[in-house]
Design a protein around this nucleic acid. Sequence first.
DNA 1: AACCTGACTTCGG
DNA 2: TCCGAAGCCAGGT
Length: 106
Amino acid sequence: MSFTCNAIKIIRNIPHGKVATYGQIASLAGNPGSSRQVSWLLHSSSEKERLPWHRVINSRGTISLKPGYGYELQRKLLEEEGIVFDPAGRINLENCLWDGRKINNP
DNA sequence: AACCTGACTTCGG
DNA sequence: TCCGAAGCCAGGT
């Protein structure tokens, strides 16, 4: 069992219509300091593991991707799930942040 | 084994 | 509130 393996499972358990921060996932995976590793693993296996990578955002509640590099796609996917963006492009974490409860707990 | 890199986070100005 | 610098972790080369 590794941090990465835990993180993958956690990301897969993010409920529809909710979002989680990198730091939150890192904490749930057992290592609060490795938020950057979460981003790496999304690159590594977002497609093979079929992760809901679009539900992962930074602590500010904004999309970390740059426009033209996935930003628009992620925003679109989130909006389709009911996530609301402010005019500044920020998400209301009070409403949309995942509480951390897993649906599947092995 | 050493060095580099990243979809981060936090602190100070 | 926004911007820049420093810190941290794990995987890749």
